[in-house]
Nucleic acid binder design. Structure first.
Length: 416
DNA sequence: TCTGGGGTCCTAGGACCC
DNA sequence: TCTGGGGTCCTAGGACCC
């Protein structure tokens, strides 16, 4: 059996843990720059706030329902996530942290009453972290996803649902609309609906050849998985295949110098993650784009893929390459709104054999270690390259909560 | 005025090699 | 000059996830 454990309204729940007066009240959490909604409490969902809605479009709802608004506090959410995951990890040796708020557990070989096991998980996570959890248990990963959805939907289940019979499997799949199936996005849902496939169950009944030709082997695996035959494997890699840092800006950026500074900073942020997983990268991509919603200016977006002459994780070297790349895609007289740096094509730093001719500068290694140490200690970047007027591109975060768990100066205070 | 920031997997087609 | 099968690598693009 597999479990999908999923934190309910995770970001909103994190905010509540440290501010219990928010219980029962509608909450939304906004993306970087307070741009759009990325999390909602149940009350906010009921009030009609849509996922991804731009903040300026829901002003009226916020007023009307007195919705509490938060800027995203990823340092807090990341730390809470690690706490939740480490509790879940104690329930089985084989688990997959699927996202910041979800975890698959492989319970094969574990002899327990599954419902009871799930209830225990939920209670422990709630007690130790304050985060509400839903647990779905089923013979495959995609069915565990379905079970989780049911656990969330029906309060009488107390947050745990187990699919352990054919009757329950079929009942669940008949209940689930096709567009809510894990792995079926908007594109496929529309095509399937047109073919008369309205529920997850209908999908499992389609001829295999049809599924394969429409959705490749990915769809076929999903179909088998939903039929109860485990076909989607647990993924256990810690190391990422690519690392990206991309941001929208708080204002329009015009000059090369402006973009240069942003790209240099994004490169350093990515390089730091790269070093943390002990990889070197062989390629990097960067992109810039103007505001796609601005009707007065033609949308401009361009990217460049750079093959590096040698694998490296040095911020200095990567920044140099990035800036050269930026020269190729920068155009004057544009109002840039977004840019990003993506590192890819990694090799293991410990296994890599330097080449005879072109190599990363070995002196950079200890320099980078020193920088990483300093930055880690303070929880933010205090050592930077090409650092200019940092204040001018601060993120807009008007509703930021505190770093309750990672900064001693912001610990929660209890007055008796 | 104001519209996120990450990721993964698969396929097809072209270049190139033996 | 033309003919052939089989392989790998790379790239772009499309689909999806939270």
């Amino acid at each position: 059996m597999y479990v999908l454990a999923d934190c309910n309204n995770f970001y909103a729940s994190c905010e509540r843990v440290f501010n219990p007066s928010l219980n029962g009240k509608p909450i939304v959490v906004l993306s970087n720059n307070d741009g759009c909604v990325i999390a909602r409490s149940n009350e906010a969902k009921v009030a009609g706030v849509k996922m991804g809605a731009p903040a300026f479009q829901i002003k009226e709802l916020i007023q009307r329902y007195n919705i509490q608004v938060f800027s995203s506090n990823f340092i807090l959410y990341g730390d809470m996530s690690r706490r939740v995951m480490s509790i879940l990890a104690s329930y089985t040796p084989v688990y997959e942290v699927y996202s910041i708020d979800e975890c698959f557990l492989d319970l094969n070989g574990i002899d327990a009453d599954m419902r009871e096991y799930g209830l225990r998980m939920r209670t422990q996570v709630r007690r130790w972290t304050g985060i509400p959890l839903s647990v779905g248990v089923a013979p495959t990963k995609s069915l565990a996803k379905v079970a989780n959805r049911i656990a969330k939907k029906f309060p009488e289940l107390q947050g745990v649902h187990v699919i352990d019979s054919e009757e329950k499997r079929i009942k669940a799949l008949r209940w689930l609309p096709i567009e809510d199936v894990w792995g079926i996005g908007r594109r496929y849902a529309r095509k399937l609906r047109a073919m008369g496939v309205n529920t997850a169950y209908d999908f499992t009944q389609l001829p295999e050849s049809m599924v394969r030709s429409l959705m490749t082997v990915v769809g076929w695996r999903l179909q088998r998985d939903l039929q109860g035959i485990p076909s989607i494997e647990m993924e256990l890699p810690e190391k990422k295949d690519s690392i990206a840092t991309t941001r929208s800006f708080d204002r329009d950026y015009n000059t090369f110098e402006d973009l240069h500074e942003r790209i240099a900073t994004f490169t350093m942020m990515s390089a730091e993650k790269l070093r943390r997983q002990q990889s070197l990268c062989r390629r990097m991509m960067l992109f810039v784009e103007t505001n796609r919603f601005n009707e007065k200016e033609d949308f401009y977006s361009n990217s460049v893929l750079l093959k590096l002459p040698f694998p490296t994780s040095s911020s200095l070297e990567l920044t140099q390459f990035a800036v050269n790349g930026l020269r190729k895609i920068y155009k004057e007289n544009k109002h840039y709104k977004r840019a990003g740096v993506i590192l890819m094509d990694f090799v293991d730093a410990n296994l890599y054999q330097p080449s005879l001719f072109f190599n990363s500068n070995p002196k950079h290694k200890s320099l980078m270690e020193a920088i990483d140490k300093l930055n880690n200690k303070h929880g933010k970047m205090i050592v930077r390259l090409a650092s200019q007027d940092e204040l001018t591109h601060k993120m807009r975060r008007l509703h930021l909560s505190k770093a309750y768990t990672t900064n001693v100066d912001e610990l929660i205070e209890i007055t008796i």
